[in-house]
């Protein structure tokens, strides 16, 4: 029972991470296409400035929860996906310092360097996270001792890449909508038109990914077994469509929320289909790492559940408060603020 609860929490932590860091990763990757001058670029940085760090902690928590609740899964996943994971970490390191370093030297080349670094180090994690999760959905070549029989390139199979493209488009739409929320004038118009242009591509890729998933993974088995679970992909599709409706109405906050819901429910759809597997083995079903054969002791699961149920709502509370408190658009006036990025 505790294993099941933790599996759900594990999925929710990843979903929230993708939803939150998703917009700043997507926006970072799109910055060269959206920001045409220094003022634009600074608005983009400052629109993410107070939030990105708090968003990224959800990744640390998702990783930490994997370690605490499913240590065997944590060990096998991170050992097996070694190269992909280190690439992801290096990219996130660069990304973090971009914010702090870029504005600290008044030299256009210095800034241009960090702008390129920001775009690359935002794009790469997005792609890698999508590739990694698609491969997990499909199953990875692990043997009975959890040893991974493959390389970084094993992950770059068509389905893995499709997952990567899906994440890139999801995050880019999400990021454009965030900028539409936080900016005004021409920059906002560019962000809005970007979201509009990317949306049909996202829809096509999402549909293809679902079909592909049906063909190469076992994710749908759970859905045929427990029909109530169709709600998850159902809400995902509905939110995706609503995103477009709200874009049409220029209701930016609403469209951003709809896109958030899309990301959350796409993730939950995948994780829901995965249950009880955390890492299905593509070599032999029996080698799969599940919530049950990789879990911590009942005592640890219980204590950690207590910690999560008390602390996480508090975290959600103060993070929500910060988002509400700093909800205003970033204007040129804000850029003259001494501490702005």
């Amino acid at each position: 029972m505790l294993e099941t609860i933790w599996f759900i929490l594990w999925g929710v932590l990843w979903a929230v991470y993708f939803m939150l860091d998703g917009f700043d990763l997507g926006l970072g990757a799109l910055m060269p296409a959206l920001a045409k001058n220094e003022t634009d670029r600074r608005i983009v940085y400052n629109s993410m400035g107070p939030f990105w760090d708090g968003n990224e902690v959800w990744l640390v928590t998702a990783g930490g929860a994997t370690f605490a609740a499913f240590p065997t899964a944590y060990a096998i996943m991170f050992n097996g996906l070694y190269s992909a994971l280190l690439l992801l970490l290096f990219a996130l390191i660069i990304r973090g310092v971009c914010f702090e370093f870029r504005g600290k030297v008044d030299n256009p080349q210095w800034k241009a360097f960090w702008d390129v670094a920001m775009a690359v180090s935002s794009f790469l994690p997005t792609l890698l996270l999508g590739v990694a999760f698609a491969n997990i959905f499909k199953g990875i070549p692990i043997d009975q001792s959890g040893i991974y029989h493959g390389t970084l390139f094993t992950l770059l199979n068509p389905y893995g890449l499709a997952g990567g493209v899906l994440f890139v488009l999801l995050f880019m739409v999400h990021g454009s909508l965030w900028l539409a929320v936080k900016s005004e004038g021409e920059l906002q118009a560019r962000a809005a038109s970007m979201a509009k242009k990317l949306w049909p591509a996202l829809l096509v890729v999402a549909v293809l990914f679902l079909l592909f998933t049906f063909v190469v993974t076992n994710l749908f088995n759970n859905y045929f077994k427990y029909p109530l679970m169709w709600m998850l992909p159902g809400v995902a599709v509905a939110s995706l469509l609503l995103t477009r409706v709200f874009i049409q109405q220029a209701a930016w906050w609403k469209s951003w929320f709809a896109s958030s819901a899309t990301i959350v429910f796409v993730t939950l759809f995948g994780v829901g289909g995965l249950f009880p597997n955390i890492l299905p083995s593509s070599i032999n079903k029996a080698f799969s790492v599940t919530a049950f054969n990789s879990a911590s002791s009942q005592l640890t699961l219980k204590i950690m559940l207590g910690v999560a149920l008390v602390i996480v709502p508090i975290v959600i509370g103060y993070q929500t408060w910060v988002y509400i408190f700093l909800r205003d658009k970033v204007t040129e006036k804000d850029l003259s603020y001494e501490e702005a990025y």
Binding site: V57, V60, G64, I311, Y318
Partner: peptide, 25 residues
């Protein structure tokens, strides 16, 4: 992981969120 992993997870939930959220604020 049963012990060590939970300590790291508690660190992230109890401290790291607060630190990262409030530094931006």
């Amino acid at each position: 992981g049963d012990i060590f992993g939970s300590l790291l997870a508690i660190e992230a939930t109890l401290a790291f969120y607060m630190e990262s959220t409030f530094v931006g604020l």
